[in-house]
Design a protein around this nucleic acid. Structure first.
Length: 410
RNA sequence: GCCAGGGUGGGGUAGUUGGUUAUCCUAGGGGACUGUGGAUCCCCCGACCCGGGUUCGAGUCUCGGCCCUGGCCCCA
């Protein structure tokens, strides 16, 4: 038997409905903040992704050549494509642009819990706004989107300025190493490394900084800086908005990518891959031939959100099945049309078996059986059987529709 | 790329120190039953992940691969 490709998944109707429901809620929140949906190609020129991240990521992407010899890649993320799109066709639109997307991405990695080779991201980009309020807006939006998705999460907000100030005295190579140790929370490793590079005093300050949960403590370590007031304002806005977050100056990941504010969210019950959201302020447009444009955004790992939610039963829709005899078929077709016009899920029996067998089959997938034979046809009525109670009555078509409309699904 | 544990019909399972036709439940299909049957009865379908090796004989032992589940690495 043929198997699906490694790291991909099939979704049965139940799971799909539950995914669509969460997706719908996320879209709805984004819309109420004025963000509008966009869509970019499933694959792009390979170069779009290597410009920023280097050739090294090719081995973690689905890369291929088309019949014209073009080097292409399935998109591994959406920020670069969205900014490419902005440079191509969004430059003359009035700023700021508020865009969101829900799309699948592909990465050639080892699958594990919450990590697949095809996965979905819900993301937001706010392009062309450069203020504390813009950054705060994106964080607040992220917070609301995760909230409506029904998961328990913690939000960590940091700023690269803190770390940069301290790391400034190091060579770029050493900065990278130091960040790696910080990210892994390997304090001994950090200390040993920095001592060996002649910066013995620095590790203590870095560790202290990563531990800070209060802005005043942070500034006590980093000293005064130019953007101090703006950073303070960002956190002031978050506090005024009653967002629950943790100040985390230790966020060290993706420093090459982001330029200022950075934030992440973590959910419970996900094992090693517990990050469900990442975002921050960045500048990418100039890499793709546009003007240097301040932007910020985030991406939600949709599949991880679904894993973190666990099993949820969705309320189903009321459904009816129509059982009929050959003489009743025409009237049954007309009746089914009426029910569907009223928005009721209506399934005709396709087997042509005896009424008893039809009802037996209908009872597995529907809440009501509509029974139509020559008697109903002659009297222009229908027999409606409530399959949960077993009671049935003969009604006019109009009354039957309103009866079912008012009923609850199983 | 590395480590650990797994892989028996669609789903869930039993299978002893290697030994006849691989167990049970469930789902699915068909039939009896022609206006009540969500039933009942009967029947059917369908599996040892793949490939080598050991053996008279492998679901069982062994090696390699694939896949799954976790963890490491990475995470734009």
């Amino acid at each position: 038997m043929l198997q699906k490709p490694r790291g991909t998944r099939d979704f049965l109707p139940e799971e799909m409905e539950s995914r669509r429901e969460v997706e719908r809620r996320m879209r709805e929140v984004a819309r109420t903040w004025g963000y509008r949906e966009i869509c970019t190609p499933e694959f792009e020129e390979l170069e779009l992704f290597t410009i920023r991240s280097g050739e090294g990521i090719i081995q973690e992407m689905y890369v291929f050549e088309d019949k014209g010899g073009r080097k292409l890649a399935l998109r591994p993320e959406l920020t670069a494509p969205v900014l490419r799109m902005y440079v191509n066709e969004g430059r003359t639109l009035s700023k700021p642009l508020r865009w969101f997307y829900f799309a699948d991405c592909f990465r050639y990695e080892r699958p594990q819990k919450g990590r697949y080779r095809q996965f979905w991201q819900f993301g937001v980009e706010l392009i062309g706004a450069d203020s504390a309020l813009a950054e705060a807006e994106v964080i607040m939006l992220a917070n609301e989107i995760l909230s409506v998705s029904g998961i328990t999460f913690s939000l960590h907000v940091g700023h690269l300025s803190f770390m940069r100030t301290l790391l400034g005295e190091l060579e770029p190579e050493d900065q990278k190493k130091a960040r790696m140790f910080l990210d892994k929370k390997d304090r001994r490793g950090l200390e040993d490394y920095l001592s060996s590079r002649g910066h013995a005093g620095l590790s203590e300050r870095l560790v202290a900084l990563a531990d800070c949960r209060d802005l005043n403590e942070v500034f006590a370590i980093t000293g005064e800086s130019q953007d101090m007031e703006r950073i303070a304002d960002l956190f002031r806005i978050l506090d005024q908005s009653n967002i629950r977050y943790t100040l985390n100056p230790g966020i060290a990941r993706g420093l090459d990518y982001y330029t200022g504010m950075v934030f992440e969210a973590f959910a419970e019950g996900l094992g090693a891959e517990n990050q469900v959201l990442g975002g921050g302020a960045y500048r990418l447009a100039h890499l793709f031939g546009g003007e240097d444009t301040p932007s910020c955004g985030f991406a939600v790992g949709f599949d991880r959100v679904m894993v973190a939610r666990g099993e949820h039963d969705l309320p189903g829709r009321v459904a009816i099945g129509v059982a009929f005899t050959p003489e009743g078929r025409e009237w049954a077709l007309a009746a089914a049309k009426e029910f569907r016009n009223a928005g009721i899920v209506t399934m005709l029996d396709l087997s042509g078996k005896s009424l008893g067998q039809q009802i037996s089959h209908i009872s597995r997938t529907a809440d009501y059986a509509l029974i139509i034979g020559s008697r109903e046809r002659d009297e222009r009525c229908v027999t409606l059987k409530d399959l949960r109670t077993g009671t049935q009555k003969e009604l006019s078509l109009f009354d039957a529709v309103s009866e079912v409309s008012g009923g609850d699904p199983r």
